[in-house]
Computed example of a mutant assay.
Amino acid sequence: MLYLIILCDILFWVLLAAGLAARYVKGWKRLGGGILLCVPLLDVVLLGATVISLKGGAEVGIWHGLSAAYLGFTVAFGHDTLRWADEKFGRRFGGVPETPREVLYGRDRVMREWRSWLRFLLAYTVSCALLIGMTWFVGGVERGALLLAWLNPLTKILIYSLVWPVIVTIRPGREPEETAPRTTAE
């Protein structure tokens, strides 16, 4: 299972690079888009392999739980990773102009940080649902205890990730002061 998780992670980056290279370097937009559409299929393959492994009577291992955690985080953060890579690749190889990064402060910054934390919550929820589902699938807690062991680190990640939005809520930052260019008369 560990090797399949590593393979899926490597294939994620290979398909991402191939799709973006086809899109921006070669100018094959349709082929690049098709390759990028294959990226989420890796999650389906990983989930299917995990279910087949468990259904086949394999001993439940810690790696089955890692596959659930991996799937939860790719569901929550995969799209943003694709978009980020697309923007970077487009600027570097496709002549896409760089969009200036917006400086957020105050309410806008607080909202962005809480939306980011909600993505962690989504990853946590999907991962926990998969872990509980797999535990039920293998016949209960007696056989699936190693799966439920993942709830501890996932819960810690969720709690620790809560620190940053709370800090930003308390101290959201101020609007940057406009600095007008000085003239010689001043």
Rank of each mutant, 00 (worst) to 15 (best):
M1N: 09
M1F: 08
Y3P: 04
I5Q: 00
I6Y: 14
I6P: 09
L7Y: 07
C8T: 14
C8L: 08
C8S: 11
G19V: 03
L20S: 09
R23I: 04
R23W: 08
R23E: 08
Y24M: 08
G27D: 11
K29P: 03
L31D: 01
G33A: 07
G33F: 12
I35G: 00
L41A: 15
L41H: 14
L41K: 11
D43L: 15
D43R: 10
D43M: 06
D43S: 14
V44H: 10
V45G: 03
G48Y: 05
A49C: 12
T50E: 02
T50L: 02
V51S: 08
L54N: 06
K55E: 13
G57S: 05
E59W: 06
V60H: 02
A68V: 05
A68E: 01
A68L: 03
A68C: 14
Y70E: 13
Y70W: 15
Y70S: 08
L71W: 00
G72Y: 00
F77W: 12
G78E: 05
W84P: 04
A85N: 04
D86G: 07
F89W: 07
F89L: 06
G90E: 07
R92C: 04
F93R: 04
G94M: 07
G95R: 02
G95T: 01
P97Q: 14
P100S: 13
D108A: 14
R109W: 10
V110Q: 09
R112Y: 14
E113V: 01
W114D: 00
R115Q: 12
W117R: 11
W117F: 15
W117H: 14
L118R: 08
F120Q: 03
L121C: 11
L121W: 03
L122G: 05
A123S: 11
Y124S: 05
S127Q: 04
A129S: 12
A129Q: 02
L130Q: 02
L131K: 03
I132V: 15
G133L: 05
T135I: 06
W136I: 10
F137G: 07
V138K: 02
V141P: 03
R143M: 07
N152A: 13
P153Y: 05
L154R: 00
L154S: 05
K156W: 05
K156N: 11
K156I: 01
Y160M: 13
T169R: 09
P172T: 03
E175L: 12
P176N: 11
P176A: 03
E177H: 12
E178M: 07
T179C: 01
A180R: 12
P181V: 09
E186F: 07
